[in-house]
């Protein structure tokens, strides 16, 4: 569990997709998600499938890693499918008691399922090929314009990167406090829900105190190193577009244009 959170889902590999600028990957993911909602029929989905398959292929991440993310949404997926299957009115093809399945329902359920699955796989491709740090940097830049409407973009990105650094430390600490209290006879496992919740107090109080102490220390250390927010800061690793990123944007533009064309023409 510890490793899952520290590395996000990042899968290290030497591929074109890994090397792309995180901004491009973020924007690309957004474009792909929008394109899924543009599609209305099988040609649109075919185009999306071809595009996604191409990107997955280029990323050199084994396909089963992409499927991992689906586990989390299986329930939502089932509900969506069942809901669409039985509720959409149209030509009835199967009927039992009060349940009736229509042709339109069947196709809509199918499209919704594909849409959801592609949504998850599409974002997995991004998280699997981008380190959490790059992702944070990319997010800071992509969301940059939001600063105009007083969104503290730099601060949000800073919070994210500090969280990435401290999550493993706090997890280790949780483990340590848990062991220490177990040594004093605490029992975190047995009992009903209320007893269990109560038994968490000896774990949570020290954990919160420790987190606050660390936050306080860190704030001091940052101030001592002249941190004063995003203004006037330079970057050690600024994001710079390279040739392949421009090529990436071109591919993305062609894909989006094709999806729009399909939508309009049919």
């Amino acid at each position: 569990m510890l490793r899952d959170i520290t590395l996000g889902q990042y899968y290290p590999a030497d591929s074109v997709i890994h090397k792309l600028d995180p901004r491009l990957k973020l924007i690309g993911t957004m474009v792909f998600l929008v394109s899924l909602f543009l599609s209305h029929d099988w040609i649109g989905y075919l185009a999306a499938t071809v595009f996604l398959a191409g990107v997955i292929r280029a990323s050199r991440v084994p396909f089963r890693y992409m499927l991992k993310g689906l586990k989390a949404i299986i329930l939502i997926l089932l509900i969506t499918v069942v809901f669409n299957l039985f509720v959409v009115p149209g030509d009835v093809i199967w009927e039992f008691w009060v349940l009736r399945v229509t042709r339109q329902g069947l196709s809509q359920a199918g499209f919704m399922a594909v849409r959801l699955i592609y949504l998850i796989i599409g974002s997995s491709v991004m998280t699997l090929t981008t380190t959490p740090n790059d992702l944070t940097d990319g997010l800071e830049r992509v969301l940059g314009p939001l600063r105009m409407v007083k969104v503290p973009v730099h601060e949000i990105a800073m919070i994210m990167s500090i969280a990435l650094r401290f999550i493993p430390i706090l997890l280790e600490e949780t483990d340590k406090i848990m062991k220490a209290q177990t040594a004093r006879g605490a029992d975190f496992e047995s009992g009903n829900l209320i007893q269990k919740a109560k038994s968490m107090v000896p774990l949570l109080v020290p954990l919160f105190i420790s987190a606050f102490r660390r936050a306080n220390d860190l704030a001091l250390a940052m101030e001592a190193r002249c941190y004063r927010g995003g203004a006037g800061r330079t970057k050690m690793k600024p994001l710079l577009y390279e040739k392949r990123d421009y090529a990436g944007y071109a591919v993305l533009a062609v894909y989006l244009a094709a999806m729009i064309a399909i939508r309009i023409m049919r």
Binding site: A180, G185, P206, S210
Partner: peptide, 20 residues
């Protein structure tokens, strides 16, 4: 096992961090 934990008392490093 619970009986054992009472027989062998273990004081961790920086034990003051478990006060609550």
């Amino acid at each position: 096992m619970k009986g054992l934990r009472a027989k062998v008392g273990l004081v961790f490093q920086y034990p003051e961090y478990q006060l609550f």
